[in-house]
């Protein structure tokens, strides 16, 4: 079953590669030797009376013994990795202005975006960074599917109310959450009119498995109990020039993603590039509830000329 799921595999693989690619640590010998060894200093036994050898858990789940002196180095390195992830995560990518376009005419609720997202961000099945909703605007209007990520507003109500700078906006427009800073007051959840934010009410999924992973603020991973999480526009992938998890896993060409400064968005399914301004102009693009003044960065194209049946019509069509 697992092997059949390319999304999950690629997510983990991507992350490992990404850690390896962190240039500034290239020179450190231990890291190369141990192959990004994640240390479990709190839980692993340190029984040796001389304290010379300690068991540690490697990234692929193997227990190995290393001298304690090296362990110190590894711990230090790990702190460095986390510091570096924090620094660049808070700074963002200069000169970029990310934007997403969601074509409602193409969505048939395949929910592959959700699966890819939940796998990448270690979410429980009921926790959504992106959720596909069945919308019906008024009594006689037609229903449609609406994928709803975080809109990464330019006037973000959630960031305004955060008391400790745990959620913040970066220069490239992304609104992120620092789970090492969040105090869990949930004011941001109350402030978001789009219900985009979720909370780790319990110990996060598989937290035991991921507990030694250095925290990446661009991925919100590993998730932390008692803190907020939400869609991050896959900030970790953008850095590598890759499209977000949801965008690239959609089978139906729903998502376009790109840089507004380049005026180009790329379709995650067809990899076709288009002018953002042209796409919006030609298709009557809009942002959701823009009257609230939140200035969302996610645009919708109206569900016109659909290629899939509207919500509630599937049964009819399957028997026809």
């Amino acid at each position: 079953m697992e092997e059949n799921n390319p999304i999950i595999e690629s997510g983990d693989e991507g992350r490992r590669n990404f850690l390896k690619k962190l240039g500034i640590f290239a020179g450190v010998g231990v890291a190369a030797a141990a192959g990004a060894v994640y240390v479990a200093s709190d839980y692993e036994e340190k029984k040796n009376p001389e304290g010379k050898k300690v068991r540690v858990l490697t990234a692929d789940g193997q227990l190995v013994e290393v001298p304690e002196s090296e362990l110190q180095k590894i711990e230090q390195e790990e702190l460095d990795i986390e510091d570096e992830l924090q620094r660049r995560g808070r700074e963002g990518i200069a000169g970029k202005s990310w934007v997403m376009v969601i074509d409602l005419a193409k969505c048939r609720n395949a929910r592959m975006c959700i699966a890819a997202c939940q796998a990448a961000h270690q979410l429980r099945p009921e926790q959504y960074h992106i959720n596909t909703l069945v919308m019906k605007d008024s009594e006689h209007s037609a229903p449609y599917y609406m994928p709803k990520p975080c809109y990464h507003c330019d006037n973000p109500p959630c960031v305004k109310v955060c008391p400790v700078n745990a959620t913040f906006k970066r220069q490239d427009g992304i609104v992120l959450i620092d789970n090492l800073r969040c105090i869990g007051c949930r004011f941001c959840v109350a402030a978001c009119p789009y219900s985009a934010r979720i909370f780790n009410w319990f110990e996060p999924r598989d937290s035991e498995k991921y507990k030694d992973q250095p925290y990446d603020v661009e991925l919100n991973v590993p998730q932390k109990k008692g803190t907020i999480s939400k869609c991050l526009f896959s900030a970790d992938r953008l850095r590598k020039g890759e499209l977000p998890y949801c965008v690239s896993s959609c089978p139906n060409g729903v998502y376009w993603f790109g840089d507004m400064n380049e005026d180009v968005v790329v379709n995650g399914t067809t990899k076709e590039a288009a002018r953002f301004s042209q796409l919006i102009k030609d298709n009557g693009g809009y942002t959701y509830l823009e009257e609230l003044g939140t200035k969302p960065r996610v645009y919708y194209l109206p569900p016109k000329n659909r290629i899939f049946p509207a919500p509630g019509e599937e049964q009819v069509s399957s028997h026809s």
Partner: peptide, 8 residues
């Protein structure tokens, strides 16, 4: 040339 894909 563009960031993710080049614009034709």
């Amino acid at each position: 040339k563009r960031y993710f894909r080049d614009l034709r």
